[in-house]
Amino acid sequence: MAHSHHDEGHGHGHHGFAHVMPVPLLLTVFFVLLGLTWVTTWVSANVPLGSYELIVSMGIASVKAGLVMAFFMHMIHEKPFNIAIVFFSLVFVALFVGFTLHDKFEYKDQETEAVYDQIRLEQAK
């Protein structure tokens, strides 16, 4: 992980190792984010999407997250290793959610209202 190798590609001029984001870019990203927030709220209030709602709103959220990461968090200029660790952390989150959720799906039918009722009633006595 030698530093000099990674930095050569970007050409950072007189600012040393800093990657300066142009103001118009920041402003554009901000207004896009604001627009997406408005869209997702409006859709939620006015468009009955049913089961697609989850996908749509999480999709919009992920686009927003992507914009924040890429531009506000300077990921487009980041070292590949730093991007990789964030990516891998998400892989581990996916593992965590995936395995646990799959397990829950497998046995959730064993949990019946009857069990709760029985416990509730017995505790009421």
Binding site: T41, S44, E53, S57, V68, F72, M73
Partner: peptide, 23 residues
């Protein structure tokens, strides 16, 4: 601190639809 702040923002970006929006 900026990176941290953006992450806090990111988490809210997900919390907002999960808690407020999805029916």
């Amino acid at each position: 601190v900026g990176l941290y702040w953006h992450l806090v923002d990111l988490i809210w970006i997900y919390l907002f639809p999960l808690l407020y929006l999805i029916h």
